[in-house]
Simulated scan of single mutants.
Amino acid sequence: MSYCAAIETMQPEARKDLHKRYHDHHYGFPIHDDNELFGRLIMEINQAGLSWETILKKEESFRAAYNNFNIAAIAAYTEADRERLLNDAGIIRNRLKVNAAIENAKTIQQLQKEFGSFEKWLEHHHPKTKEEWVKLFKKTFRFTGGEIVGEFLMSIGYLPGAHTESCLVHQKAVKAGALWAKK
Rank of each mutant, 00 (worst) to 15 (best):
G116T: 05
A73I: 03
I55S: 01
H23A: 04
A105W: 07
A72V: 09
K97G: 01
R82H: 11
N87F: 08
G90P: 03
I45R: 09
N67V: 01
F38L: 07
W121A: 04
K20V: 05
E13Y: 14
K113C: 11
N67M: 10
A76V: 00
E83W: 09
R21V: 15
E36C: 06
Y22P: 05
A72P: 01
Y77W: 13
F115K: 11
L41Y: 07
K58E: 06
N70I: 13
Q110C: 11
W121D: 02
K97I: 00
S51Q: 05
Q109K: 14
H19I: 08
S61G: 14
F62T: 00
V98S: 01
T107A: 11
S117A: 10
N68H: 15
T107P: 02
A64H: 12
I31K: 03
I108W: 02
I108N: 06
I42Y: 00
I55K: 04
I31L: 10
A73Q: 12
F38V: 06
W121V: 06
E13P: 12
N35Y: 02
L18P: 00
L85T: 01
L86T: 07
Q110T: 14
S51R: 10
F118M: 10
R21M: 11
D34K: 05
E59N: 09
A76M: 03
I45G: 13
H32Q: 12
R82G: 03
A75D: 00
D33L: 07
T107N: 05
G28H: 03
N46G: 12
E13L: 15
E36A: 15
N70V: 11
S117Q: 08
A89G: 10
Q47M: 08
G28K: 04
R15D: 15
A14C: 07
I71W: 07
W121T: 05
E53F: 15
E103R: 13
